[in-house]
Structure formats: C-alpha cells, structure tokens
Design a protein around this nucleic acid. Structure first.
Lengths: 127, 127
DNA sequence: CCTTGCCTTGACGCCGACGACAAGGTCTAG
DNA sequence: CTAGACCTTGTCGTCGGCGTCAAGGCAAGG
C-alpha cells in the first residue's frame, strides 16, 4: 500500500502521514524507487492516532497507544502507559470543564446585569 | 501616565499595551519627545480588555466593550453590541462544554474497558 | 515521446497574543 | 560625562498540526 491509498483509507492526507512518520508514530518500508510502502497494520495505527487527536490529544499523548498496538494488542488502550495517559487526560478535561463552567456563570451574570441595567436606564412600556 | 506605569497598574506589559494600540483598542496622546501619554480612563479600558481576554475572548470580541466604555458608560457590558457578543460567547462556551462532556464520557469508557480487559487477561489474586 | 498521476524532500504559511531582542533616542541624578 | 532607567520602532520566535507550493523523479498508457 502506498501513501496515497493509506491516506484515503484512513481519511487523511499524505502530508499528514509523512508528518506522523517524521514524529516517529507511523512506519513504512521503502520500495526500490524510494516510495513508502505500508502494510495493513499501519491502517489501524493511523486510525488510532486520528481518533485520539480528534478527542484533543497531542502527538506526544498518542505515542503510548501506538506502541501498545505495535506490541500486538487488539486495542491501544490496554497498556499501562496508555491507561496513565487516559487518566491524566480525564483530569485535564475535568479541569477545563470546571473552568468553562465558571466562565459561563460569569458571562451569564454579566449578561443579566447588563440587561437589568438597561431596563433601569431605559424602561420598557407595558411591562 | 507613561506606558510603563499604565502597564504596571493594569498588571501587564508595555509590549502588550502597544499591541492593543496597534489593534485599535487603546489610545494615547504623544508628548513632545514621542512618548505615549495615557489618561486615567485608559486604565479602565485596559482592565476591561484583560478581564475579557482572561475569560477566553479574542481581541475582536473585546472591541464593542471598549467602545461602550468610551461612550461614557460605567460598564462596558451595557451596550447592545456588547450584549450580542455576550450572548454569542455563552452559546460558544456551552458548545465547548457539551463537546468536552462527550469527550470525557468517551475517555471514561475507554479507561474502564481497558481496565476490564486487563482484569480479564491478567486477573489479580485475592479479588 | 509525452502526458498524466503518482511519489520524493524541503521549506514557508497559518492562527493569536504576545515575549524577547536589537538599535537607538531621552531624561535625570551623581 | 556617564550610567541607568525610561521610552521608541521593527522584527523574529512561540506553539501544533498540518496545508500548500516548489522542483524534481518514476511508472504506465496513447
């Protein structure tokens, strides 16, 4: 399988696959003419990477999952390092959610006060 | 008031104030030697900007609030344009919170399944 | 032979709010 | 006179995951 085919099957671009390779996540043999040749297993790897990036992981966070797949596991999640990253990410996500909740409450307060102020300054009739 | 003093009083840097000025948010006269001279009102403007940026606004989102302060209002929130931005931002924040909630649930699922898999593959004694 | 369509490496662009540094002018105190 | 503490404009660097050329090699069909 050449890079174009893998890209299409994984729903991404050749550029992206070379980028992953440059960062040590995806591997390829080379054919005589220098083309990258991938075997079927890489498709799963690439899909794992894409799935995790979509969820907000960085490339570094993804490494343990790829290693886990390469170690022969059916899922990239089952290795200790992957589990650690999952736990850490959940904590991070929780922190962001809390922060955004606070932001949301503050914005809501500002909004209601602004509207109250306008009612006060320039009252509506028939209210 | 020179730029250094305003920066300190607003809890930021001269570089940042020049940046805001370059983007049309903060204004200054110039003294004979070319130095920026700010009057007291700019302190409130800068603090408004900082407060909104801290909450995740972009510079463009901040403009209506600055204009509102410049129009003589006690708060930057009370003008129609500001209210619109507030409403829009709340919607945006809600969307992100929802998205993160879904992500959190997915990660939690992955985590519990990974742990379950490990129990199954390599069961603990005395359990 | 030539075009078309793959592939290769290399390098710059993007987004946003600045930080950091360069090279220089200004003002003041000792 | 000079040091040092301000100020000025201008430019490049940051972070991440790529997109988008640029310039060229390789394979196959008409």
């Amino acid at each position: 399988m050449l890079i174009g085919e893998l890209a299409e099957r994984a729903g991404t671009s050749p550029r992206t696959l070379r980028y992953y390779e440059a960062h040590g996540l995806v591997r390829a043999r080379r054919s005589a003419n220098g083309y990258r040749v991938y075997d079927e297993a890489e498709l799963r790897v690439v899909r794992e990477i894409r799935a995790l990036l979509d969820v907000g992981f960085g490339l570094d966070d993804v490494r343990p999952f790829v290693a886990c797949l390469r170690a022969g596991n059916t899922s990239g999640d089952v290795c200790p390092d992957s589990v650690l990253v999952l736990r850490r990410k959940i904590v991070e996500v929780d922190a962001v959610i809390d922060r955004l909740g606070a932001v949301r409450r503050q914005l809501h307060t500002q909004l209601t006060q602004a509207i109250a102020h306008r009612e006060e300054t320039c009252p509506r009739r028939r209210t």
